[in-house]
Amino acid sequence: MERRVLSASELTEVQKSIMRKEISSAEILMEIYDHYISHLQEFSEEQFSRELFELDQKFSYGYCHALQSKFNKEAKADIAKTQWMVIQKYFCGSRWLFLAGILVLVFYISTQTRSQQELGILLLSPLILLVFANFAFDYQNFKKLRPIKKTFKGIGIPIYSSLARPISERIYLPVLLAQVLVYLPKIIFPNLELAPFLSALAGMITVLLTLYAISLLEVWKIKSKTALI
């Protein structure tokens, strides 16, 4: 049978039907919506209600939520795996030269610092990079999610990208870690004198944070080609 174009009222009915499942993951929403429309386009107007009912039975509330939960877990694992792969690649081939360059540069800067404030700025530099990346990331994510949010306007629950969440969490992670690294030694060892190796320590932490930030940006670049981020 020739595919037909669904009427506006039919599309609204499909959207309402999917909204009742209360799915928040944009990836799952778009996939189910596309499945519904592709299927219903093959049936006449008279068969529409029956077919929509049958689809609703197949894509039950429980099934959709199980699918979403599993997909979220897989997305989180995927981001972690991809970032680890990216970091490993820095140590392979000619890339290690690039890494060594960053290392030397950061250590050189750390030895040139004259005060704790300067060391603080050095430590903050990769975090500042992450903050700016976060703005760009949120904006791109907003742009990519817009058509889906528009389709499911009035869903009543926030729609998010399953792949965006783990990346956002990873952007915030070093900011929290930096707080821990700054305050924890002072709490545990109040009399610890860090001054002799402070610049080396700051240099090492900056290298790690830079490596982390750059690898995360690369993960975003890789995933943005194929996902809603």
Binding site: M30, Y33, D34, P147, I148, T151
Partner: peptide, 9 residues
């Protein structure tokens, strides 16, 4: 991901 007839596929 591709835009197809006002939906994302």
């Amino acid at each position: 991901i591709e835009q197809v007839d006002n939906r994302v596929r």
